[in-house]
Computed example of a mutant assay.
Amino acid sequence: MRCIDTTSTPGFFDVVGGTDRSQAATMVLAPGQSTGGPENAHAASDQWLYVVAGEGTATIAGDRVDLEPGVLVLVEPGETHEITNTGDDPLETVNVYAPPEY
């Protein structure tokens, strides 16, 4: 068993734990900041993105999803994706990759 405090991660993207089968990371986007884009895809990993705080959008394989606290989104292998903070506060997410991506 592992218990990780995700509230004290310092950067924009931090891998906070993992095993041979999966990996967890935190991500914080400043207002107006985006990550990913039309070429960004994970070849073999599912990415689960859970919104902790803030608001934004995810564009996944051309489809737009609104992000707000409590939303959980699955980005499947090969799907291009971009995450954008559209709010006035940081967009904070916890991301799980299976198998590990980073």
Rank of each mutant, 00 (worst) to 15 (best):
T9R: 03
N40A: 10
P69F: 02
V65W: 13
V71F: 02
G32A: 10
V28Q: 02
A25R: 12
L74G: 00
Q33N: 10
N40F: 13
T86V: 14
V52Q: 07
S8D: 11
T80P: 01
T6L: 09
Q33H: 07
V75A: 08
A30M: 15
A58E: 07
P69Y: 06
G62P: 04
L91I: 06
E55M: 08
G37W: 00
P10Q: 13
D14V: 14
G32N: 04
A58W: 02
F13D: 03
G37M: 05
D88C: 03
P31T: 06
D89H: 02
T84L: 14
S45P: 07
N85T: 00
A24T: 13
A58S: 11
E82C: 14
N40S: 11
G18S: 13
D14T: 12
I60D: 01
R21W: 08
T57C: 03
A58N: 03
L72Q: 07
G56S: 01
G56H: 01
S45Q: 14
V71T: 13
R21N: 09
T59H: 07
Q33M: 15
G62F: 13
T35D: 10
E92L: 04
P31G: 10
G17V: 01
V15Y: 05
V65T: 14
A43K: 12
G62V: 12
T59G: 04
I83M: 12
V94I: 15
G37R: 02
R21H: 14
L49Y: 11
V94F: 07
F13C: 05
T59L: 02
Q33F: 08
A44I: 03
P90V: 10
L49Q: 09
Q47T: 10
T26V: 12
D63K: 15
W48K: 06
R64I: 09
V15N: 04
I83N: 07
D66V: 06
E68R: 15
G54S: 06
G54Y: 01
H81G: 06
E82I: 13
V28K: 13
I83A: 04
A30Y: 06
G32L: 04
S45N: 09
S45F: 05
V71S: 09
T86W: 00
G54D: 03
S45W: 06
T86Y: 00
E68H: 15
N85S: 13
A44K: 08
T57N: 11
E82K: 12
G17N: 00
G18M: 08
G54H: 03
H81L: 02
D5Y: 10
P38W: 14
R21C: 05
V94Q: 03
G70F: 12
T9E: 04
P38N: 07
S22L: 15
D88T: 14
Q23I: 00
N85F: 12
M27T: 13
T59A: 04
T7H: 11
T19D: 02
G17M: 00
D88V: 04
I60C: 08
E82S: 05
G56Q: 01
G18E: 10
P90S: 08
D88S: 09
T19H: 01
E79H: 11
V16K: 06
P31V: 13
D66L: 14
I83Y: 05
I83H: 13
E92H: 08
G62I: 10
E92S: 13
F12G: 00
A41R: 15
V52A: 12
D14H: 04
A58C: 05
M27L: 15
D89W: 00
G62T: 08
G32K: 12
W48E: 06
E82P: 01
P77N: 09
